[in-house]
Write a protein that binds this DNA or RNA. Structure first.
Length: 350
DNA sequence: TACTCGTGGGA
DNA sequence: TTCCCAAGAGT
Protein backbone atom coordinates (compact mmCIF):
# COMPACT_ATOMS: atom_id res chain seq x y z
CA UNK A 1 0.00 0.00 0.00
CA UNK A 2 1.11 3.54 -0.67
CA UNK A 3 1.92 5.70 2.35
CA UNK A 4 0.84 9.36 2.19
CA UNK A 5 3.02 12.28 3.30
CA UNK A 6 1.24 12.81 6.62
CA UNK A 7 2.32 13.15 10.23
CA UNK A 8 0.52 9.88 10.94
CA UNK A 9 2.57 7.80 8.51
CA UNK A 10 5.80 9.27 9.86
CA UNK A 11 4.75 8.70 13.48
CA UNK A 12 4.02 5.06 12.65
CA UNK A 13 7.57 4.78 11.32
CA UNK A 14 8.95 6.57 14.38
CA UNK A 15 7.18 4.15 16.74
CA UNK A 16 9.29 1.39 15.19
CA UNK A 17 12.55 3.19 14.45
CA UNK A 18 13.05 5.92 17.06
CA UNK A 19 16.72 6.17 17.97
CA UNK A 20 17.77 5.80 21.59
CA UNK A 21 19.27 8.91 23.16
CA UNK A 22 20.12 9.70 26.80
CA UNK A 23 17.65 12.62 26.92
CA UNK A 24 14.85 11.03 24.94
CA UNK A 25 11.67 9.41 26.23
CA UNK A 26 10.91 6.50 23.90
CA UNK A 27 7.56 6.70 22.06
CA UNK A 28 6.13 3.67 23.87
CA UNK A 29 6.92 5.33 27.22
CA UNK A 30 5.43 8.64 26.02
CA UNK A 31 2.29 6.71 25.12
CA UNK A 32 2.07 5.62 28.76
CA UNK A 33 2.18 9.21 29.92
CA UNK A 34 5.88 9.53 30.76
CA UNK A 35 6.99 13.13 30.22
CA UNK A 36 10.57 14.28 29.58
CA UNK A 37 12.40 16.50 32.07
CA UNK A 38 12.36 20.02 30.53
CA UNK A 39 15.81 20.68 31.98
CA UNK A 40 17.27 17.71 30.15
CA UNK A 41 15.47 18.58 26.90
CA UNK A 42 16.72 22.17 27.11
CA UNK A 43 20.29 21.06 27.87
CA UNK A 44 20.31 18.53 25.04
CA UNK A 45 18.82 20.95 22.51
CA UNK A 46 21.39 23.64 23.31
CA UNK A 47 24.20 21.09 23.00
CA UNK A 48 22.72 19.83 19.72
CA UNK A 49 22.78 23.26 18.07
CA UNK A 50 25.02 22.75 15.01
CA UNK A 51 26.46 19.67 16.71
CA UNK A 52 26.06 15.97 16.02
CA UNK A 53 24.31 13.55 18.37
CA UNK A 54 27.49 11.48 18.61
CA UNK A 55 29.51 14.48 19.81
CA UNK A 56 26.86 15.52 22.35
CA UNK A 57 26.18 12.25 24.17
CA UNK A 58 29.18 12.17 26.52
CA UNK A 59 28.87 15.88 27.32
CA UNK A 60 25.20 15.46 28.15
CA UNK A 61 25.93 12.60 30.56
CA UNK A 62 28.75 14.59 32.16
CA UNK A 63 26.61 17.70 32.64
CA UNK A 64 23.63 15.87 34.07
CA UNK A 65 25.88 13.98 36.49
CA UNK A 66 27.61 17.18 37.64
CA UNK A 67 24.40 19.24 37.67
CA UNK A 68 21.24 17.09 37.85
CA UNK A 69 18.83 20.06 38.01
CA UNK A 70 18.65 23.58 36.62
CA UNK A 71 19.13 24.91 40.16
CA UNK A 72 22.37 22.92 40.48
CA UNK A 73 23.62 24.37 37.22
CA UNK A 74 22.57 27.88 38.18
CA UNK A 75 24.65 27.58 41.36
CA UNK A 76 27.78 26.38 39.55
CA UNK A 77 30.88 28.52 39.10
CA UNK A 78 31.44 29.88 35.61
CA UNK A 79 34.93 28.39 35.13
CA UNK A 80 33.69 24.90 36.03
CA UNK A 81 30.92 25.06 33.45
CA UNK A 82 33.20 26.48 30.75
CA UNK A 83 35.75 23.73 31.49
CA UNK A 84 33.05 21.06 31.26
CA UNK A 85 31.97 22.45 27.88
CA UNK A 86 35.56 22.58 26.57
CA UNK A 87 35.90 20.73 23.26
CA UNK A 88 32.23 20.97 22.30
CA UNK A 89 32.62 24.30 20.50
CA UNK A 90 30.48 27.41 20.04
CA UNK A 91 31.28 28.57 23.55
CA UNK A 92 28.67 31.34 23.59
CA UNK A 93 26.27 28.44 24.12
CA UNK A 94 27.91 27.65 27.45
CA UNK A 95 27.87 31.29 28.54
CA UNK A 96 24.20 31.60 27.61
CA UNK A 97 23.47 28.22 29.20
CA UNK A 98 24.55 29.59 32.57
CA UNK A 99 22.70 32.86 32.02
CA UNK A 100 19.55 30.94 31.15
CA UNK A 101 19.85 28.56 34.11
CA UNK A 102 20.17 31.52 36.48
CA UNK A 103 17.15 33.30 35.01
CA UNK A 104 15.07 30.12 35.30
CA UNK A 105 16.29 29.56 38.88
CA UNK A 106 15.76 33.09 40.12
CA UNK A 107 12.87 34.41 38.03
CA UNK A 108 10.91 31.21 37.35
CA UNK A 109 11.45 29.36 40.61
CA UNK A 110 13.56 26.72 38.93
CA UNK A 111 10.73 25.71 36.60
CA UNK A 112 11.06 26.12 32.84
CA UNK A 113 8.21 28.08 31.22
CA UNK A 114 6.31 26.06 28.62
CA UNK A 115 5.16 28.50 25.95
CA UNK A 116 7.33 29.04 22.90
CA UNK A 117 7.25 32.81 23.42
CA UNK A 118 8.42 32.70 27.02
CA UNK A 119 11.10 30.13 26.19
CA UNK A 120 12.46 32.24 23.35
CA UNK A 121 12.85 35.18 25.75
CA UNK A 122 15.56 33.21 27.57
CA UNK A 123 19.28 33.52 26.72
CA UNK A 124 20.51 31.09 24.07
CA UNK A 125 17.00 29.94 23.11
CA UNK A 126 16.03 31.00 19.59
CA UNK A 127 13.26 30.07 17.14
CA UNK A 128 14.34 26.44 16.77
CA UNK A 129 15.14 25.62 20.39
CA UNK A 130 12.00 27.28 21.77
CA UNK A 131 9.82 25.20 19.44
CA UNK A 132 11.82 22.06 20.26
CA UNK A 133 11.41 22.45 24.02
CA UNK A 134 7.72 23.44 23.77
CA UNK A 135 6.90 20.43 21.61
CA UNK A 136 9.19 17.76 23.06
CA UNK A 137 9.06 18.65 26.75
CA UNK A 138 5.49 20.02 26.91
CA UNK A 139 3.82 18.37 23.92
CA UNK A 140 2.63 21.72 22.55
CA UNK A 141 1.89 21.80 18.78
CA UNK A 142 4.87 23.98 17.80
CA UNK A 143 6.84 23.48 14.59
CA UNK A 144 10.60 22.94 14.67
CA UNK A 145 12.61 24.10 11.67
CA UNK A 146 16.20 22.89 11.78
CA UNK A 147 18.52 21.71 9.04
CA UNK A 148 16.85 18.30 8.94
CA UNK A 149 13.33 19.68 8.60
CA UNK A 150 14.47 22.15 5.94
CA UNK A 151 15.99 19.33 3.91
CA UNK A 152 12.99 16.99 4.28
CA UNK A 153 10.47 19.71 3.42
CA UNK A 154 12.51 20.92 0.43
CA UNK A 155 12.62 17.37 -0.92
CA UNK A 156 9.08 16.17 -0.39
CA UNK A 157 7.74 19.40 -1.93
CA UNK A 158 10.55 19.79 -4.52
CA UNK A 159 11.36 23.32 -3.37
CA UNK A 160 14.15 24.62 -5.60
CA UNK A 161 14.50 28.05 -3.97
CA UNK A 162 17.96 28.14 -2.40
CA UNK A 163 18.55 28.58 1.34
CA UNK A 164 18.38 30.78 3.28
CA UNK A 165 15.79 32.49 1.03
CA UNK A 166 13.58 29.40 1.15
CA UNK A 167 13.32 29.39 4.94
CA UNK A 168 9.89 31.09 5.31
CA UNK A 169 8.47 28.89 2.56
CA UNK A 170 9.84 25.74 4.23
CA UNK A 171 8.46 26.88 7.58
CA UNK A 172 4.96 27.22 6.06
CA UNK A 173 5.21 23.70 4.64
CA UNK A 174 6.49 22.32 7.96
CA UNK A 175 3.68 24.00 9.91
CA UNK A 176 1.07 22.56 7.56
CA UNK A 177 2.27 19.05 8.43
CA UNK A 178 2.58 19.52 12.22
CA UNK A 179 -0.08 17.52 14.06
CA UNK A 180 -2.09 18.68 17.09
CA UNK A 181 -1.39 15.41 18.89
CA UNK A 182 2.04 13.96 19.60
CA UNK A 183 3.78 17.12 18.42
CA UNK A 184 6.92 16.23 20.36
CA UNK A 185 7.24 12.74 18.91
CA UNK A 186 6.47 14.16 15.48
CA UNK A 187 9.20 16.82 15.75
CA UNK A 188 11.71 14.18 16.72
CA UNK A 189 10.49 11.84 13.98
CA UNK A 190 11.18 14.38 11.21
CA UNK A 191 14.65 15.02 12.61
CA UNK A 192 15.34 11.29 12.91
CA UNK A 193 14.18 10.85 9.32
CA UNK A 194 16.54 13.59 8.17
CA UNK A 195 19.42 12.19 10.20
CA UNK A 196 19.09 8.56 9.17
CA UNK A 197 17.25 8.30 5.81
CA UNK A 198 16.74 11.71 4.20
CA UNK A 199 20.46 12.47 4.62
CA UNK A 200 22.30 15.31 2.83
CA UNK A 201 24.20 12.91 0.56
CA UNK A 202 22.93 9.63 -0.86
CA UNK A 203 19.51 9.61 0.83
CA UNK A 204 18.03 6.15 1.36
CA UNK A 205 14.83 6.90 -0.54
CA UNK A 206 14.10 3.20 -1.02
CA UNK A 207 13.27 2.73 2.67
CA UNK A 208 11.76 6.17 3.34
CA UNK A 209 8.26 6.10 4.88
CA UNK A 210 7.40 9.16 2.76
CA UNK A 211 8.89 7.93 -0.53
CA UNK A 212 5.53 7.45 -2.28
CA UNK A 213 4.53 11.09 -2.00
CA UNK A 214 7.95 12.71 -2.30
CA UNK A 215 7.91 15.23 -5.17
CA UNK A 216 11.66 15.62 -5.11
CA UNK A 217 12.13 11.89 -5.60
CA UNK A 218 9.50 11.84 -8.36
CA UNK A 219 11.40 14.61 -10.15
CA UNK A 220 14.70 12.80 -9.61
CA UNK A 221 16.25 15.75 -7.80
CA UNK A 222 15.87 14.79 -4.14
CA UNK A 223 19.60 14.32 -3.46
CA UNK A 224 20.32 17.82 -4.85
CA UNK A 225 17.92 19.52 -2.44
CA UNK A 226 17.88 21.83 -0.64
CA UNK A 227 19.80 24.15 -2.93
CA UNK A 228 22.11 26.59 -1.15
CA UNK A 229 23.86 29.86 -1.83
CA UNK A 230 27.57 29.24 -2.45
CA UNK A 231 29.78 30.08 0.54
CA UNK A 232 32.88 32.20 0.65
CA UNK A 233 36.36 30.71 0.80
CA UNK A 234 38.11 30.63 4.20
CA UNK A 235 41.11 32.95 4.63
CA UNK A 236 44.19 31.78 6.54
CA UNK A 237 45.26 33.64 9.67
CA UNK A 238 48.43 33.21 11.69
CA UNK A 239 49.40 33.77 15.28
CA UNK A 240 51.88 32.99 18.05
CA UNK A 241 51.01 31.07 21.23
CA UNK A 242 53.31 31.22 24.25
CA UNK A 243 53.57 28.28 26.64
CA UNK A 244 55.45 29.30 29.77
CA UNK A 245 56.31 27.09 32.75
CA UNK A 246 57.99 28.20 35.95
CA UNK A 247 60.60 26.21 37.86
CA UNK A 248 57.85 24.34 39.73
CA UNK A 249 56.34 23.16 36.45
CA UNK A 250 53.24 25.34 36.68
CA UNK A 251 51.61 26.50 33.41
CA UNK A 252 50.85 30.12 32.51
CA UNK A 253 47.27 30.40 31.26
CA UNK A 254 44.72 33.17 30.89
CA UNK A 255 40.95 33.33 30.80
CA UNK A 256 39.88 34.90 27.54
CA UNK A 257 37.45 37.85 27.52
CA UNK A 258 33.78 36.92 27.86
CA UNK A 259 33.01 37.68 24.24
CA UNK A 260 34.25 36.83 20.79
CA UNK A 261 36.13 33.74 19.69
CA UNK A 262 36.62 31.19 22.51
CA UNK A 263 35.15 33.77 24.87
CA UNK A 264 35.32 32.82 28.54
CA UNK A 265 37.62 29.87 27.83
CA UNK A 266 41.06 29.10 29.21
CA UNK A 267 43.93 29.60 26.75
CA UNK A 268 47.60 30.35 26.22
CA UNK A 269 48.72 33.96 26.03
CA UNK A 270 49.46 34.95 22.46
CA UNK A 271 49.44 37.40 19.62
CA UNK A 272 46.36 38.42 17.71
CA UNK A 273 45.29 36.09 14.92
CA UNK A 274 45.62 38.00 11.66
CA UNK A 275 47.37 37.77 8.31
CA UNK A 276 50.37 39.59 9.83
CA UNK A 277 50.39 38.88 13.57
CA UNK A 278 52.44 41.00 15.96
CA UNK A 279 54.38 38.93 18.54
CA UNK A 280 53.14 39.57 22.10
CA UNK A 281 55.04 37.42 24.62
CA UNK A 282 53.78 37.53 28.24
CA UNK A 283 57.38 38.11 29.44
CA UNK A 284 60.71 38.90 27.81
CA UNK A 285 62.84 35.77 27.92
CA UNK A 286 64.56 33.34 25.60
CA UNK A 287 61.58 31.80 23.82
CA UNK A 288 62.24 28.66 21.85
CA UNK A 289 60.02 27.49 18.99
CA UNK A 290 58.34 24.17 19.66
CA UNK A 291 59.25 23.23 16.12
CA UNK A 292 55.81 22.17 14.97
CA UNK A 293 53.05 24.60 14.02
CA UNK A 294 49.48 23.97 15.15
CA UNK A 295 46.91 23.94 12.36
CA UNK A 296 43.25 24.40 13.14
CA UNK A 297 40.17 25.36 11.17
CA UNK A 298 37.37 27.46 12.62
CA UNK A 299 34.02 28.16 11.01
CA UNK A 300 35.24 31.08 8.92
CA UNK A 301 39.07 30.88 8.78
CA UNK A 302 42.08 28.58 8.88
CA UNK A 303 44.64 29.20 11.62
CA UNK A 304 48.35 28.41 11.74
CA UNK A 305 49.78 28.90 15.23
CA UNK A 306 53.50 29.17 15.89
CA UNK A 307 54.11 27.67 19.35
CA UNK A 308 56.86 29.22 21.51
CA UNK A 309 58.02 27.71 24.81
CA UNK A 310 60.13 28.90 27.74
CA UNK A 311 60.86 28.32 31.42
CA UNK A 312 61.03 31.35 33.70
CA UNK A 313 59.86 32.58 37.10
CA UNK A 314 59.45 36.19 36.06
CA UNK A 315 56.01 37.54 37.01
CA UNK A 316 54.13 37.69 33.68
CA UNK A 317 52.28 40.68 32.25
CA UNK A 318 49.14 38.63 31.83
CA UNK A 319 47.68 35.29 32.85
CA UNK A 320 48.16 33.20 35.99
CA UNK A 321 50.30 30.18 36.76
CA UNK A 322 48.15 27.09 37.20
CA UNK A 323 49.77 24.36 39.36
CA UNK A 324 50.91 21.36 37.36
CA UNK A 325 48.77 18.94 39.40
CA UNK A 326 45.53 20.89 39.00
CA UNK A 327 45.94 21.64 35.30
CA UNK A 328 43.72 19.55 33.08
CA UNK A 329 44.34 19.88 29.32
CA UNK A 330 40.77 18.69 28.79
CA UNK A 331 39.60 22.03 30.24
CA UNK A 332 40.99 23.77 27.15
CA UNK A 333 39.20 24.42 23.88
CA UNK A 334 40.52 22.12 21.17
CA UNK A 335 42.85 24.56 19.45
CA UNK A 336 44.50 25.34 22.81
CA UNK A 337 44.76 21.65 23.63
CA UNK A 338 46.58 21.16 20.32
CA UNK A 339 49.06 23.84 21.41
CA UNK A 340 49.50 22.02 24.71
CA UNK A 341 50.22 18.72 22.96
CA UNK A 342 52.97 20.33 20.89
CA UNK A 343 54.47 22.24 23.84
CA UNK A 344 54.34 19.23 26.15
CA UNK A 345 56.32 17.22 23.63
CA UNK A 346 58.89 20.03 23.46
CA UNK A 347 59.24 20.24 27.27
CA UNK A 348 59.71 16.49 27.49
CA UNK A 349 62.66 16.74 25.11
CA UNK A 350 64.52 19.04 27.53
C1' DT B 1 20.79 40.98 6.10
C1' DA B 2 25.19 39.24 6.74
C1' DC B 3 28.60 37.98 9.69
C1' DT B 4 30.49 35.67 13.80
C1' DC B 5 31.02 31.67 16.32
C1' DG B 6 33.98 25.23 17.04
C1' DT B 7 34.63 20.82 16.24
C1' DG B 8 35.08 16.14 14.33
C1' DG B 9 33.65 12.85 11.00
C1' DG B 10 32.81 11.41 6.43
C1' DA B 11 33.23 11.47 1.39
C1' DT C 1 43.66 17.28 1.28
C1' DT C 2 39.82 19.68 1.12
C1' DC C 3 35.27 20.37 1.49
C1' DC C 4 30.84 19.70 3.55
C1' DC C 5 28.17 19.86 7.26
C1' DA C 6 25.33 18.92 12.24
C1' DA C 7 18.73 19.23 16.33
C1' DG C 8 21.22 27.79 15.43
C1' DA C 9 21.68 32.06 18.16
C1' DG C 10 23.36 36.65 18.76
C1' DT C 11 24.52 40.89 16.91
Amino acid sequence: MREPVTSGSLLAWYDQHARDMPWRVAPHDRARGVMPDPYRIWLSEVMLQQTTVAAVKDYFVKFTNLWPTVDDLAAADDPEVMAAWAGLGYYARARNLLKCARVVATEHGGVFPSSRESLQALPGIGPYTSAAIASIAFDLPETVLDGNVERVMARIHAVETPLPTAKPELMDLAQALTPRERAGDYAQSVMDLGATICTPKKPACGICPWRDGCEGRAAGIAPELPRKIAKKAKPTRRGVAYVLRNSKGDWLLETRPNKGLLGGMLGWPGSDWTEEPIPAPPIQTSWEPAGVDVRHTFTHFHLILNVMTARADTPPDKGVFIPHLSFRPSDLPTVMRKVFDVAKHRFEQN
